[in-house]
Design a protein around this nucleic acid. Structure first.
Lengths: 344, 344
DNA sequence: CTGAAAGCGCTAACAA
DNA sequence: TTGTTAGCGCTTTCAG
């Protein structure tokens, strides 16, 4: 049973039919019921498993699609991946997860490699983009869906208004009465970093209207808890008692910031309100639970997968952009309740 | 540039050499420097990318390996995956992530599918096993490394002493003076659930020796935060004030338990000490940070990947088992410090 | 509806 | 060292 692979000729021989008939009986169309029955039986008897490689070579199709991200440790991507996986699996595709590294060049290399007949299509969520990358993606001829932005309008894209999401967070904090607001962002040369900065800057009029001030915009080295912790420490130490609310560019930074606040004896939300973004599972679970702007990662993953399947089915169709609206989910980290009330 | 794939014959023609020479010049051995140079140049000129499918079919090798897990949402698996990825990538392999579903049957189906020439090997971390699965794995003839246990000693295996790890957690709590200890486990019909239950049961003598009692062993529906929250609520409500420490079978359950405790106005660790297992990033980051037994997920992933690569290189070698020792990492959730001290 | 045969892109065995 | 050729396992024409 082990080792010796059973091939289609074996099955055909066993069933006493030709190779072509065996193939048609198993996958193709135009075989008589009797033939199908016979071949099926022979295949089952021999424990035949069609060889994916032979099939791929002949059909010029691998039934694999790739999901390429910079940082698979980020729960956002895990969420997207789960969503993508379930959509594509339904249509008989397998998912290959690839790691891009942060830079556009390494992403470009990855795409080139993938284009080598390894996958039928690609869902890409790059942290940093460049015009060249967009170029390469379009010219590679491989079906691609970008989650985020490339500036290349010829590509299928799933976007979300993360800038507007930051605006929602600011509005929320202003409505709760906070007036001295800091912004904790990730690297500005990333797509999300740039967009979220834009969102915070755009909130200036709303803040001015109620006499609130933006105390500082701080940039963490990365969109991670560790980077958020470090940056928030510095931020809080430089403005002791002068910040009453902090908008973080994602949940991981927010968690780092809360940790920094607690280290300094500040209570959250009592002394400092904090909001995150992405509404990862962590947000609902953290202590205190984290107010976060949902960017609907699952939905974006699902949309990207659907878009890719559609393009695979019809390569000539026009590029489509799906936009998903952000929603603020209010939780304890920005409530004005006391800790005891919150505990209830 | 797009669409029309350039193939090896194209390169050979451009370089004015034969197909075979072109192949050898690019990958194989035994080509003159001049030949290599010429072919390289032609390939670069045409933007040649070797086709993975043709190569795989001919070489009977895909350079892909699969990592199959039940629940990719669990940070433990993400950690393993990252480790595996970095090891195998170094040797030119790509990683395919597959989702098994919880049951042995669905795992079996997955393995059968994967065996169809899709991957060269498999790293499997099943939640539930059955003798049949072990059988199938050995007889499939595909190189497999199991992270966990199958009972099949003919398979390469990476294990850890999670039972002993639970013992460490109990000892730790006893040393801190806790005497009424509850155990929050995941499903008992899973490999980790069974092992961790065994570990807690085995700690009975140590507990008896200092006059401590096991208040209850509770089984959550799943190894998730949500299931932990629900189970811990019931547990705490049924034994009000009668539990001073809780051993959770993993970090997710522990986080759920802490949330349940806080809901009930209990302070952690003041009123209830909690320990987790797996030492995920969450443990260090959570508020309060979580004492956890590290099972060295990265190391296990790395070991599994290394084992698999070795087997790929030498299919005939004897099955090896690598065992990784657990270590308790003490943090705030089990400290005896007050919250204020902890904040420092 | 079935059988025969071609060939997807590549590597490796065999000749020269 | 190089060219020629067979063939990996499969699907899909093309005849019959």
């Amino acid at each position: 049973m082990a080792g010796t692979r059973v091939t289609l000729p074996d099955v055909a021989a066993r069933a006493g039919v030709s190779l072509g008939s065996a193939s048609r009986a198993l996958h193709g169309t135009g075989a008589s019921p009797a033939m199908v029955e016979r071949v099926r039986a022979a295949a089952a008897e021999l424990g035949y498993q069609p060889d994916a490689t032979g099939r791929s070579l002949r059909m010029r199709k691998t039934f694999q699609i790739a999901f390429a991200v910079a940082d698979i440790g980020n729960p956002v991507y895990v969420e997207m991946m789960t969503a993508i996986q379930s959509v594509v699996a339904e249509r008989g595709y397998r998912l290959v997860v690839a790691s891009t590294g942060g830079s556009p060049q390494s992403t470009a290399e990855l795409v080139a490699g993938l284009a080598a007949g390894l996958v039928d299509g690609l869902i890409l969520s790059p942290l940093r983009t460049s015009p060249e990358l967009g170029q390469q993606l379009t010219s590679s001829g491989m079906p691609v869906v970008v989650i985020g932005r490339t500036g290349e309008s010829t590509l299928d894209t799933v976007t979300t208004d993360s800038a507007g999401g930051i605006g929602q967070a600011v509005d929320h904090l202003l409505a709760l009465g906070h007036r001295r607001i800091a912004f904790l962002n990730g690297p500005l040369d990333t797509t999300p970093g740039e967009a979220r900065q834009r969102g915070f800057d755009a909130a200036a009029p709303a803040m001015a209207a109620v006499g609130a001030q933006a105390v500082e915009c701080r940039v963490a080295a990365d969109f991670t808890v560790a980077a958020g912790l470090e940056a928030a420490r510095a931020l809080l130490d430089e403005h002791p008692g002068r910040i009453d609310a902090l908008v973080a560019a994602n949940d991981l930074l927010a968690v780092g910031a809360i940790k920094a606040a607690v280290e300094r004896g500040l209570s959250v939300p009592g002394d400092l309100a904090v909001t995150g973004m992405d509404d990862t599972e962590l947000a609902g679970v953290f202590q205190p639970s984290l107010t976060s702007v949902s960017l609907r990662s699952s939905e974006r993953g699902r949309a990207a997968a659907t878009l890719l399947l559609e393009r695979l089915a019809d390569p000539g169709r026009a590029a489509t952009t799906v936009t998903v609206a952000p929603t603020l989910i209010s939780r304890e980290s920005s409530s004005t309740l006391t800790d005891e009330e919150v505990a209830r």
